[in-house]
Design a protein around this nucleic acid. Structure first.
Lengths: 116, 116
DNA sequence: CTCATCTACAACCATGTGGTTGTACGTTAG
DNA sequence: CTAACGTACAACCACATGGTTGTAGATGAG
């Protein structure tokens, strides 16, 4: 199972980062092409500082890193974290599938053992 | 693209629900087998009411529904929400892949147009 | 019936979150 | 050099979150 080498707190931060529309939007923009923090901020009806904070949350979740380019700070997505989160959810679905299999096995056995 | 028929707020709640270790644990237990709220609460070093609240958060995210069985309330996982969340993350990864493809296309064209 | 169990919910508290404004500092354009 | 730009960060505010205790209502066991 292994649930990835992430600690609970790291996973908390990861999903926390996804749990805001603005942050998901920032993420998509940064996925599509390169953006500076102020380049991102231009798209939202909130202060630069607010966007800066959102980027910081994405950073803390290791979803994003900033790279200095002249006086700008380019936001780049770190794909690994995205994959990890996705795999976690896949594992949950796998657990469900195992349960379903287990139950149908039991039903199959019971039918074999005591057929009505 | 469609990003699923979920509203932003619903997606917020979905990821918010995942953003807590206790809730993820509850989810796994409920995925593995049937649990009442108090059955779940027995496993955690916190009050029954706290666990009740966590279940409520999972409910609000549509990850879980409660089903009355006698005096107990059985927590069942609603798999759809799990799948939706996973698909969202997959879409983000797809966006990234498209970008990579686009860039390598451009590089290929440039090489074809003006080979050094 | 009576009592223990399971649940629901309100009130409260500390801390976190998402937003603001203001100030300061490095960097680039003119 | 100077002005404008991009960033960083602190202080503040309203509200959400994760926890607590306490009270009360259904339901099942004996």
């Amino acid at each position: 199972m292994v649930v990835d080498e992430l600690t609970d707190v790291e996973v908390d931060r990861l999903f926390q980062a996804f749990a805001d529309t603005t942050r998901r939007d920032i993420l998509v923009r940064a996925l599509v092409s390169d953006y500076s923090v102020s380049g991102l901020a231009a798209h939202y009806a909130m202060s630069f500082a607010a966007v800066q904070k959102h980027v910081a949350v994405l950073e803390r979740a290791n979803l994003v890193t900033k790279e200095k380019r002249g006086r700008e700070q380019i936001v780049r997505v770190h794909l690994d974290a995205l994959r990890r989160a996705r795999r976690l959810l896949e594992e949950y679905e796998a657990i469900w599938r195992q349960r379903v299999d287990r139950i149908s096995d039991i039903l199959a056995e019971e039918e074999g053992a005591s057929p009505t």
